[in-house]
Computed example of a mutant assay.
Amino acid sequence: MSVSPSINPYPDIGEFAFGNKGRILISIFLYLELYFVAIEFLILEGDNLQKLFPNAKIHFGCVKIVGREVFVLLDAIVILPTTWLKSLGLLVYVSIGGVLASIVLVFLIFWVGAIDGIGFEEKGVIWRWDGLISAISMYTFCYCGHAVFPTICNSMKDRSQFPKLIISY
Rank of each mutant, 00 (worst) to 15 (best):
F141R: 01
S102E: 10
I7E: 08
V66S: 11
G97N: 05
D12I: 05
V112W: 10
G97I: 02
E15G: 11
V66L: 01
W127A: 14
D130F: 02
L105A: 13
P81I: 02
R68P: 01
K157N: 12
P9D: 14
C62F: 00
V148L: 06
F110A: 00
F149S: 05
I126G: 09
I133K: 13
A38Q: 12
F41Q: 03
H146C: 05
A76S: 13
V78D: 09
L32Y: 11
E15V: 02
S87A: 01
L105D: 15
A114Q: 07
I136S: 11
M156Q: 06
W129Q: 06
H146S: 12
S134A: 13
E15W: 07
E122S: 12
S134T: 15
M156I: 04
I152D: 12
L91Y: 04
I126S: 15
I152L: 08
K64N: 06
R128S: 08
V70A: 05
F29R: 00
P163W: 11
D130W: 10
W84A: 04
P11F: 08
G117A: 08
I118N: 04
P11W: 12
A135I: 08
G14L: 13
Y10A: 07
P54W: 15
Q50R: 00
E15F: 01
A38E: 04
W84D: 00
L44Q: 02
W84Y: 10
N8M: 06
Y31F: 09
I7D: 11
G117R: 05
I77A: 15
N8R: 08
V78C: 15
L74V: 15
L42F: 13
K64P: 00
V72H: 01
V70W: 10
P81C: 00
